[in-house]
Structures are given as C-alpha cells and as structure tokens.
Design a protein around this nucleic acid. Structure first.
Length: 270
DNA sequence: GGGCGGGCGGGAG
DNA sequence: ACTCCCGCCCGCC
C-alpha cells in the first residue's frame, strides 16, 4: 500500500482524511442533476414499450406505454403525483435495462424502493424471484416472507408495486387458477402471462378439477403447475393434488425450485 | 359455486 | 394513538 506523507501539524488525523477521500472516491457524483433528479426514458420490450424512471439509486417507477395511452406527459404527471419530484429526460437507459427487457431476465436490475415499507419491499423482493413463464399464488408470497396469513396484504402491496413488469407482480395469481387483479387491469395481466407462454388454459382446466399441484410419481416431487419442472412431467407419471398435505400423504415432497406449501410456522413479528 | 367472514398492512381522519 | 375502511385474497360452507 502506498503511503503519502503529510505534515501532521494542526491537520485532521490521516485516517480521517483517507476515509473522507475514500468516500468520495467510491461514490463519485456522475453529474449533479443525476444526483438530484430522477430521469426517464422509453424502452421497447417484447410485450410493449415501457416508460421507466430511474436515478443512480436504481429504477424507481415503470408504466407501460399502453397504460399511459402512449403519452409521455401522462407518464410524467403520474410520476410527479406519486413522488412529488420532477423528472428529466435521460440520454440513455439505465445500465442493463435493454438486455433485461429483451431477454425477460429482470432479476439483476437495481431498483430504488426507498419509498416503500419493509413489508412492501419484502413482498417485491420475493416476487422478483419468480421466473418468466411461471406463476405463484398470493399465499405463496405471504409464506415466503414469513407472514403466511397476510395474503390479502400481499395483494395490497403488489397493487402499489412502483415497477410493474420489471418486478413481475403479474406472475402472482389467485389460487383458484385465475390471474386475478392487476395495476393495469386483468386483461393486461393475462396478456403478459400468455406472452411469456404461461398456459393459463391448462391452469384453469386443472383448477376446475381442484388440482393445484402436480407431482411426478418417478421423482416423488410435487410442484406448482407452472413450475419448469412440473412442465416436464410426462402424462403417464403426472399426479394431481388438491393441496400440499394431500401430496405429502402420498409421499411427495415439495419441489426445491418452486417451493410449494413451504411451512413457515407462526408469523414473524407482532 | 358463489357468498361470507377471516385475515392483515397502510392510509385517512 | 386509535379506529375504521379498503384492497391484485383464500377457503370453507
């Protein structure tokens, strides 16, 4: 390590100076306006264009072009109504956004969820893990965050998701096989799911037979019907279950990938 | 099979 | 602070 000699008389301790300089060095202001104002851009995605607001903290707000009637002023106004801050046009999209929307892999994106409560952030963090082409029930999200009875509150939190599509709350569906409500309306939710090849017709058909889980009698593993692994079960080995207890009685254990019916015990907290 | 109450977080008053 | 009310729900009648 290089030590630069400094005269000691009257100046602050060297380690303090170094700490201050290090803080500046690791967090350089890219530009003053980028630090104060959020920026916005419009990007093309396979499911339609998106308006995206972001700062150096991450992506903070998303609307579909469809939802704002293809009108950027509607987007800007909706941002201002929620955040009470202005928005500047960006020179370029935030890092990683273009490949993320092109491939549908939005998980590595950085988000600025600072306005949200801990509960809402927990809900969105879990939701962000749901792979494209798969769905999970609201109750699953509730269990995953350790609040198994807060099912409806999960819906409320997802309804306030500031970054829909990128944090895929459209992949959280009702337990009876219908997609359920959505910020941009149920039909937008259904369209997004179909675009990522979720077989909603099959899910609905299974649900009508009271089948909400699928297992393979060759592996003894049970999954949500849209799980990547469930979709590989051949017809003759596929077993349907109404609930995870029934599957367990038949000797099936939950898939480690889609984690159906994870028992979490009592809710955490007050 | 839909209606009903349980359940819970958050915001309004 | 406390109550009331609403909401992308759930599962049992």
């Amino acid at each position: 390590m290089v030590i630069i000699d400094r005269d000691g008389g009257g100046s602050p301790p060297v380690d303090e100076l170094e700490a201050a300089l290090a803080a500046l060095a690791v967090d350089p202001p890219a530009s003053l306006s980028a630090r104060i104002f959020a920026q916005w851009c419009r990007v093309t995605s396979p499911t339609g264009d998106l308006y995206v607001a972001f700062s150096d903290q991450g992506i903070s707000y998303v609307r579909t072009a469809e939802a704002v009637g293809d009108d950027e002023t509607v987007f800007l106004e909706s941002f201002r109504a929620r955040f009470e801050r202005p928005l500047l046009a960006a020179d370029r999209p935030p890092p990683g956004l273009l490949p993320a929307v092109r491939t549908g892999r939005t998980r590595p994106l950085r988000f600025d969820l600072g306005q949200l409560t801990d509960f809402e952030r927990a809900v969105l963090t879990v939701t962000a893990q749901i792979p494209a082409g798969q769905t999970r029930p609201y109750g699953w999200v509730a269990k995953e965050i350790g609040r198994p009875k807060a099912v409806r509150a999960v819906g409320t939190a997802l309804g306030r998701n500031p970054v829909p599509v990128l944090i895929p709350c459209h992949r959280v569906t009702r337990s009876d096989g219908v997609p359920g409500e959505y910020v941009f309306g149920p039909q937008a939710k259904e369209r997004l799911l179909r675009a990522e090849a979720v077989n909603l017709d099959e899910v609905r058909e299974l649900a009508s037979e009271r089948i909400f889980y699928l297992g393979s009698d060759t592996t003894g593993i049970v999954c949500f019907p849209t799980c990547h692994h469930a979709r590989r079960i051949t017809a003759k080995h596929r077993k349907g279950f109404r609930n995870i207890e029934q599957a367990a009685e038949h000797g099936y254990r939950p898939c480690l990938h889609c984690r159906p019916g994870i028992a979490t015990g009592d809710a955490v907290g007050a």
